[in-house]
Every structure is written in structure tokens, then in C-alpha cells.
Nucleic acid binder design. Structure first.
Lengths: 179, 179
DNA sequence: CAATAACTTGAGGCATGCCTCAATTTATAG
DNA sequence: CTATAAATTGAGGCATGCCTCAAGTTATTG
């Protein structure tokens, strides 16, 4: 059985991890996360097993929330081209808002919860892309991998240049994908 | 005065650094670089002062060579649009061929030799971009920063996805920049 | 209110890698 | 050939951070 206090600690650790990873990157000392959660390192390891496990546990929830919002906004677009554009812009804004999430996605180990959640999200985007191609507003040779590449690219641009450059890059890519 | 053997050691260290950084990334243990150069860590520090200094010393030469070749090829293009395109494609291929160089550029500290060399190279590219805009084959609101963003982006795409994705991204961006 | 399974704790062992500096060696000029 | 300035050496001190586990604490169930 799982004790109630253990679950509470896990929750606190997830929250602390989101904060600390945002402030100091995914390599932040786990001691800091533990202490911010009001708990010892030992407990962190008891709950999540490893840094990888903690990243997975903390980021998957975050991703799900963000993707729901993005999907809702995109779904409101009637036009297929606008829907695809809405996805791209929504995803960049998510990356800008939560760079640690973006980074953890870019290096999510295959098979992790995060990778699965990500794959699910990309299915929606792929559908929007297919719709845009059918509507004739996007080049027929565009692939979902191009979107993946853009997202990976943005992670670097946001951290090494700035948010606006990532927005610009996204717009340019979108222009390049239109036919 | 500077002793001849010291210069030789510096040269050997530069070469070893290029190899090891290529194989194991810019964070590779300096002990390995020293031993591959047939020298002790102490000597490495005597010659380059720090990891930063070594990266700067080893990569600046490499960059200069590559950029010369790229510039020569681009200069052979008569058409302004083709010249700009040639620069972009040439730079991506350089990034693919020497990812460690690409990465060191992306994180070159301001004021370093590498940053200066890089700025010089970007002047050529900026001129090509201006030419392409004048010729009316590239959007007039395109900026040299867009190229910088693309190069930073490619570093991530090459290491986290693959070389072909970076090539595709570059082509898409080029299409997006054309008007 | 036991009895016990679940959980927490944090000091400490381990690994990695940076960088230094006193002792030693070597190139070079005169 | 000698004097000496220039270089090299590498063991070792330092810092960081991971992860473990034996001892102690606490929730839960009957």
C-alpha cells in the first residue's frame, strides 16, 4: 500500500522540481529540490528513483496541461491553415514560457512517460498538418519531422539567443512551409 | 622569450583538442587531450590557461579555414540569390562536418578570438544577404540575426535529431526568407 | 493501543574532473 | 660549456554532486 504522506511528498517534490529546473536548468542539484520540498534527498530517491525519473514525473503533468490549452485554441480555428499555424505558435509560446519543459522534451528517453505524452501531442499536430496540406495551403512534401526539428531548434534559440528570435524563426519556417 | 618546444606543444594540444572535442564534446576531460598530445595537464594549463582558452585556441584556426572555403565557393556565384543560398548551405555543411566547432561558436564568450572570427565571417554573410535583398529575391525585412538564429538552431538539430533534418530546416528557412 | 509495514533521514562513500605548484628538466644565448 | 630563463611534470588538494543504507520515525490497520 501507498501511504498518504508519501504521495504528498511526491507532489511537493514535483512542484519544487518544476521551480528549480526552471531557475537553474535540468542539471540543478537534487539536494536543492529536496530541501525546497521540505524533504531529504533520500526521500526524493525513494519517490522518483533518479534525476531522470524526477524529470519525467514533474514534466509530464506540466506538458499535459499546456498541450490541452494549445489544442483547445487550435481547435477553435475553422480554417485548416490557421489551425496548423495556431499549433506552431502555441508550441513556441509554451517553449518560451517553460524552457525547462522544452529542454526535457528534447532529451526525453524513449519509453518515458514524457516521450509518450509528447507522441500523443504530436499526433494532433500531424493531423493539423495533414489538414493544411489537403487544403492546399502547405507544401505537400512537408513532414511532421519538420515540426519536430523546429521545436528542437527553438530550444537552442531560446536559451542561446532570445524568445523573439524563436518567434521569428517559427514565422519564417511557417512561411517556408506554405506553398 | 618563447621557446620553440613550447610552441610545438601548443600546436599538438590544438590538434588533440580538435580530435577529442569532436569525439566527446566540449566537456571532454582535459587530461585526455593532454595525454593524446603526449604532454601533461600542467602543460595544457601553461599554454592555454583554461578550457575556455583551449577551445578558443583550437577552434579559431578551424573556423578560419572552413570560412575561407565557404566564402570562396559563395564568391563564385554570380547571382545574388544563389550567393546567399550558397553561404547558408555551406555553413550548415560545416556545422554537420564539425559539430564541436558549431557548438563552441554558439557559446563563444564575447571578446574571445572565436567570437571575433565569427563576427568577421558574419559580415560576409550580411553582405550577401543585403545583395539578395537588393536583387529582390529575399524579403526586405530579413535580418542577419535570422541567419544567426538558424545557425544556433542547427547546432541543436544536428545533435538531437540528425544532419538531414538540419539540411531540410535550412532549405525551409531559405524558402521562407524568399519573397 | 499495539504491531508492523511504509517511509524518512542525512552523513558518508564514491566518482569525476578542475587546477596548482614545488621540484625537476630542458632549450637557448653568450 | 655554463648559466639561467623557460617549460614541463603529475601527485594531490579542492569542489561538486550522485546515490546508498542502517538507524530512526510515523501512518495505518485490526
Amino acid at each position: 500500500m501507498v501511504r498518504a504522506d508519501a504521495q504528498l511528498n511526491a507532489e511537493r517534490l514535483r512542484t519544487a522540481a518544476q521551480e528549480v529546473f526552471a531557475e537553474r536548468g535540468l542539471g540543478a542539484p537534487l539536494e536543492e529540490i529536496a530541501s525546497r520540498a521540505g524533504v531529504s534527498v533520500g526521500t526524493l530517491y525513494n519517490r522518483f528513483g533518479s534525476r531522470e525519473g524526477l524529470i519525467d514525473g514533474a514534466m509530464t503533468v506540466l506538458l499535459r496541461e499546456q498541450v490541452e490549452a494549445i489544442t483547445a485554441r487550435a481547435g477553435a480555428c475553422v480554417d485548416a491553415g490557421a489551425r496548423f499555424a495556431s499549433y506552431l505558435h502555441g508550441l513556441v509560446e509554451m517553449q518560451i514560457l517553460t524552457p525547462a519543459l522544452a529542454q526535457s522534451i528534447a532529451q526525453a528517453p524513449p519509453g518515458s512517460e514524457l516521450a509518450k505524452e509528447c507522441a500523443t501531442a504530436m499526433e494532433h499536430v500531424a493531423a493539423a498538418l495533414a489538414g493544411a496540406i489537403d487544403a492546399g495551403v502547405v507544401r505537400s512534401d512537408a513532414r511532421i519531422d519538420d515540426v519536430t526539428a523546429l521545436l528542437v531548434a527553438n530550444v537552442a534559440v531560446i536559451s542561446a539567443v532570445n524568445a523573439d528570435s524563436a518567434r521569428r524563426l517559427t514565422s519564417v519556417v511557417l512561411a517556408g512551409l506554405r506553398q
